[in-house]
Design a protein around this nucleic acid. Sequence first.
DNA 1: ACCCTGGAAAGAAAA
DNA 2: GATTTTCTTTCCAGG
Length: 911
Amino acid sequence: HAKDRHPCPGLFPVLHPYSTVGIRMLINSPSFLSEAFGYTSSNISISLPLGNPCLVTPYNNIQSSPVISVSSGHQAMYGGHVDSLTSSYCLPPIRPNGAPALESPRIEITPYPIGLHSQYNQEDETEESIPSAKRANSIVTLSLPNADNYRDPSCLSPASSLSSRSCNSEASSYESGYSYNYDNSPQNSPWQSPCVSPKGTAQDGLPACTLMNSPRHSPSTSPRTSVTDETWFTTRNSRPSSHQSYSPQHSPTPSPQTSPRVSVTDETWSVTTNQYTNSAIVAAINALSTDSNVDLNDGIPMKSRKTHNDHSPTMSLKVEPGGDDGTTIPSPLDLGVEEFQNSRMPFKKEHFCGEFLSVPQNPYTWSKPKPYISPSLPALDWQLPSCSGPYELQIEVQPKSHHRAHYETEGSRGAVKASAGGHPVVQLHGYMENEPLTLQLFIGTADDRLLRPHAFYQVHRITGKTVSTASHEVMLSNTKVLEIPLLPENNMRAIIDCAGILKLRNSDIELRKGETDIGRKNTRVRMVFRVHISQPNGRTISLQAASNPIECSQRSAQELPLVEKQTLDSFAVTGGKKMVLNGHNFLSDSKVIFVEKAPDGHHVWEMEGKVDKDAFKPTQLLVEIPPYRNQRISSPVQVHFYVCNGKRKRSQYQRFTYLPTNVPIIKTEPTDDYELSPICGPVAPGLSTVSKSFYNQQVLTTLMPSDPSTCFMGSFSSCHQRNTVMLSGSPTLNSNSKLNELSSSAYSKCLSSIGHNQLAGVQQPSAGVPIIQEVPSRAIDVPSSSPDQSSLIMLQPQVSRHLSSNSHDLRQTLYPNSPSSSPVPSNTQEAPYGQAYSPSHSSSSMTQGQQHQKTPQNSPPTNHLGSLPGLEEENSETSLPVTVKREPEELDQMYLDDGKLRAFSSTGLHS
DNA sequence: ACCCTGGAAAGAAAA
DNA sequence: GATTTTCTTTCCAGG
C-alpha cells in the first residue's frame, strides 16, 4: 500500500505488510546495529502517533521481540565483547554495576507522534497521500529543525533524532559499502533504526529491536530514498542550510569513485573495504558510548529554538548545485525535492519495491558478517594512535593554519588548502595489502582538551572539476565524516582536496541537549583522519592523525596572532637568546609573554620577552628569551609563551622549556617530548612543533597513566586492566610503543566514556531509561564519595580548580584564544581535560609509569608536566609529589548540574 | 550561471 | 542599565 502510493516508500510509516521483512533487516543490517546502539545507550522512547493504526501494528511487533533484547544485547556487548575487541582501542567498561539495571530495557511509547512526526511531516509535505490524521499529529511536533544532524539531534524528539542520525550516517554508509541490501527497504527504515546486534549473531539477546522512528532510515538506505532524505532535511532545516551535504551516502551509485584517478567504483570501494561497515560500527559504538547518551533519551529538546520552528513547513530546499561529481547522480540534497522526485521518483519506486522485497530473499546479502564480527570501531572522540605495528597514518602535508569556514547561508568557501599551496596530503605507511582502505576525515576540536568532533564545524564535501579525490559523506552521530579511498595504487596516499569546512550557527548547536561547549570564540579546528585496517586475525587496527589547528573564523584569522613555528623549544634559565617566531598577524607592537602556570591555573610567573621591533614582520617576530625566575632549577621547567596583540588578541600558548644551567642544554627535550606523544604520528613538516607537542603531550598525560591505581580507580582500573589484556593479547600491538599508544587510547576512551556516562546521567535523569541506568549511577556517584570516584575526582578537581581558581584574567591567559573562553569543559571530556591541562602529580606519575612500559625512545628525559620545578624542584625532582586535588563541591556541581551555566559557575567564572 | 573569495555591514553577545 | 567592544552571521560584489 505504501509503496504504491508513495514515491518514497521509505518515508512511509506503514509497515505491516512488510513487518517481517523489516525485522529481518533490522537484525542483519549494520545500520540497525548502530541505531540499536544509539538507542540502547540512551533512553529509548518510541513515539507513536496514536491515530495511526498502521504504525501501531508494526510497532507492536517490534516491541514484542526485538526491542527488549536490545538493551540486553547491549550489555552483553559491553561486558563480553569488550575483551574480544579486535581493534586497538578499548571499549569503555560500560557495564554497570550489576547487570540488573540493564535488564529491563524500556521502551516508552509516547502519545504524541514525536519521533515520526518529523519524518512524516516531510512526507506530508512531499506527498499528499498520507492520512490527514497522521499529518496532524506529526505536524504538531515537527517544529524541530532539520539539519538536526548537525545541530541538535537532541532537540529532536528522541525517535526522530535517532532516526535521523542513523539514517544519515551509518545507514548510508552501509548502503554504499554493502550491497544495497538496505536500499530497498524503505519500509524497514523506520524499523531499522532500532537494533542490530553488533555481532550479528552473537549477542544472545540481541535481537534487533526496532523502533520505527526513522522514516528517514529507509530513505537513506536506498539511493533513491536518499532523495527523500534529503528532502526531508531540507524541509526540516530551518535555514537554507541545505548545504549540509547530506547526500553523500545517499546515492550509493553516485559515490565518489567518479574521480578520474580512482579506479575504484563505489561498490568496489565500499565493498572491498570494510570501512563502511566500520563506519557503521563506529557509529553504533559512538551512539553507545558517546553521544547517544546525550541526545537520545530526552525526546523533546528542552530548549526550543526559533529557527527550527520556522521551517518545518517550508519545503524550500536549498538546492545544491549539482551532484558531486559530474558522474555522480545528484543527491536529493542537490536537487530540489521536487526536482529530485520528478527525475527519480519513478525509479525509486520500482527500485524500492523490488529491492525491498528482494532483500529478505537474498540471504547472502546479509552474509557479510565482518562488520558484525568486529562491531567495535572507536567512537570519534576516542583518542587513537597514529601508528601501530607497521602502520602509520601520517599527514604529509598540513592544512593552512587559516581557513574561513562557510556558513550554511553562504556558498562553499572551497576546500581546505595547504599553506604552501595545494592541499593537505595524508598517507598510510606500512600497508602492503592490495585492498583499498577508507580514509575517514572529520573536523575535530583544537582546544586544550582531548580531541573530539567539533560541535560547531563539520567537514564539507567539495566536488567539482578541480577536485581530484573521490569522497563521500557519512554521518556518525552528529559528526559528518568524509570517507576517502586510500588506494594501494596511489601508495595509500590521498590528496585532500575535497574537504571544506562548514560552520554551524552557535545558537543551533548550543541548544543541543547534551552540548556543553559554547561556540563563541571556539573557532579553531583540526582535520582528523582515521583509517581502520582489518587484520587477518579479525582484528581491526584503527589509526588516527590530527592536523595542526586551523583557525576558521574570518575575524580571528585576520586579527589573532598565530605562532606556527619557533626556532627554540628550550633554553637555559639564563635566557638572553633570541628566538624567531614565524606565524601570522604579528604587529610591530606585538608582545611575547612567557608564563608559568601552577597546576591550579595560577600564574606563578609572567615575563615579557623583548621583541626586536626592527626585525618585525607580519609573519615573524624576533624575541629575546627572558631569564627564568629561578636560576637554580635542577630539572627542566615547562612554561608557555604567547604573542599578544592586545587585550583579547592573543595567540595560543606555545610551549617552552627552561633548562638548568648546570645541565648541558640539550635541545632534544622538546623533541622527545613531542615524540612522547601517544600519538606517535610523526610531525608533519611545517607543523608547529610547539602546538603539536602540546597536544600530544596532553594526550599523553591524560591518557596514559601508568599506574591506574594512582589515578584511576574503580571502573577506571577495570578499564585499564582490560585494555592491558587486550593489548598484550593482540599480536599487532605487541611493541611497547604500540602498547603505549593503545593503552593511551584505551584510557582516553575510558575517560571519555565515563564522561559521557556522567553526562548522560546528569542530563538524562529520566528514570525510565534502561541503558542509561548504569550511567546514572556512575555519574551521580562520582561527585559523591565513593571509592570509585576517586579517579574522577582527581580529574575533576583539577579542572574545576583550574577554572575556578582563575580570575577572569587568568582564565584568559590560560586559554587565550581557545574556546576555552568556554570554561566549561563538556562533561564528556572533563576528566581528560583536567588532567591534560594542569598536569598534576598524578599525571606526571602516570607519565613515568608510562615510561617504564614504553620504549625508551618515547620517554622524555624528564617531563615534569605537573610539577613546578621552580617551586618544588628542591624536593620533587624525581619523585613527584602527589597532590590530591579536590574540590568536591565544585565537582558535584559540575556533574550534577547540567547546562553550561552550571559549569560556568562551578568553574569559577564567578570568581 | 556558478563558485570562490575577500570585505564588510548587520546583529548578537559579552565586557 | 546604558554603552562600548568584540565576535558572529549574513550580504555583497568582483574575479
